[in-house]
């Protein structure tokens, strides 16, 4: 058991090594990196969307750079290309789910009526637009830049 957890810990603190390791190590590093980058991309996208309510320092450029950085970190942390593809897929799915959840959350938290979900449709339309034209391209762009960097320094 302790060997198990120490192996898990090592895979998370050394994701580049783990991305070349055993099947379990690859999975652990991909899931950990994908989850964390996906969550930060979602939080930055939400702030980008609700820009009028964001604090002054959290401007569009800063938030866009964060999503880009999250995409680059996917490949920089999960160095193995195959593992990084899995990590990026997890990041995209988690990021999309979290962004949608954040858009719906105020209605559930404050118990605002949604007319059987109809009131959520414009919110979800905005989320889809944001994902298709903002979050996913930025994540992918960062990821590709990191691939080019790794290729150039290989």
């Amino acid at each position: 058991m302790s060997e198990d957890t120490s192996g898990l810990w090592k895979a998370m603190t050394h994701p580049s090594h783990a991305s070349y390791g055993s099947r379990r190590d690859r999975l652990v590093s991909a899931v950990a990196v994908g989850l964390l980058t996906g969550v930060s991309a979602a939080m930055a996208t939400y702030t980008l969307w609700q820009g009028a309510l964001a604090p002054g320092w959290a401007g569009d450029t800063v938030m866009g750079s964060l999503v880009f950085a999250a995409g680059a970190l996917v490949k920089l942390l999960c160095q193995n290309l195959k593992t990084s593809v899995l990590a990026l897929s997890i990041a995209v799915v988690v990021g999309a789910a979290m962004t949608a959840a954040a858009a719906v959350a105020p209605y559930l938290l404050l118990d605002i009526g949604t007319l059987g979900g109809i009131a959520l449709l414009p919110e979800l339309r905005d989320v889809i637009t944001l994902l298709v034209f903002g979050q996913v391209p930025l994540l992918l762009f960062g990821y590709l830049v990191a691939i080019v960097y790794d290729g150039a320094t290989a």
Binding site: L36, V39, S40, A44, Q50, A54, L66, A69, L73
Partner: peptide, 20 residues
């Protein structure tokens, strides 16, 4: 790089909490 990930997480979480 992990420290970079922590910074990205912390900044986006701070922005998210303030905005939400």
């Amino acid at each position: 790089l992990l420290a970079g990930l922590v910074v990205v997480l912390a900044v986006s979480a701070a922005a998210f909490v303030a905005t939400a």
